[in-house]
């Protein structure tokens, strides 16, 4: 249901048309989750990327833990995990401020899923890693700086 609501925001008219359908029709629909944010993945400015994704770049800090190394020897493979105790998590977004394009990944979570994601990311250079959690329609963020000694984006 939350997924449907997000669609309405993102897709505007299309979403509004879908919203008139009974929820039971929407849930099993494979395309019910938000569309791939193609343009945001190309955005080069962190604040703009946040603005495009969430409508604001001013996101308050929340109870989110980012587990990542203080110093990454190899920027091509930086293990990062995000966990939060906030309930009703709808999505987790990972961004690296100094990467050529800050948006790294966006995870849409089912209400049954925990506020937890672990993956491995590339970092061009030393930068804050930012996690944005959307829970019950509210936004929370956290940041942790990872020092990179060898970049992951060069040849």
């Amino acid at each position: 249901m939350n997924l449907a609501r997000r669609d309405i925001l993102k897709l505007g008219l299309t979403g509004a048309a879908l919203a008139t359908l009974p929820i039971g029709v929407l849930v099993p629909d494979r395309s019910a989750h938000a569309a791939y944010p193609e343009a945001v993945f190309k955005e080069k400015d962190l604040d703009k990327a946040l603005q495009d994704l969430f409508g604001t770049s001013d996101i308050p800090a929340g109870d989110i833990k980012i587990k990542a190394p203080d110093i990454a020897e190899n920027g091509a493979v930086v293990p990062v995990s995000v966990s939060t105790s906030i309930g009703g998590v709808e999505s987790i977004t990972l961004l690296v401020k100094e990467n050529p394009s800050p948006l790294v990944a966006h995870f849409e979570l089912n209400p049954r899923a925990d506020g937890y994601i672990a993956t491995r990311i590339k970092m061009g250079k030393t930068s804050p890693v930012i996690a944005v959690v959307k829970a019950d329609g509210k936004l929370y963020s956290a940041s942790k700086t990872v020092k990179v000694t060898i970049g992951g984006c060069g040849g």
């Binding site: 993945f41 990944a105 089912n110 993956t119 990311i121």
Partner: peptide, 10 residues
């Protein structure tokens, strides 16, 4: 879980 990834995933 639905993940949207960019090029910065290892």
């Amino acid at each position: 879980c639905v993940a949207n990834w960019g090029v910065a995933i290892s």
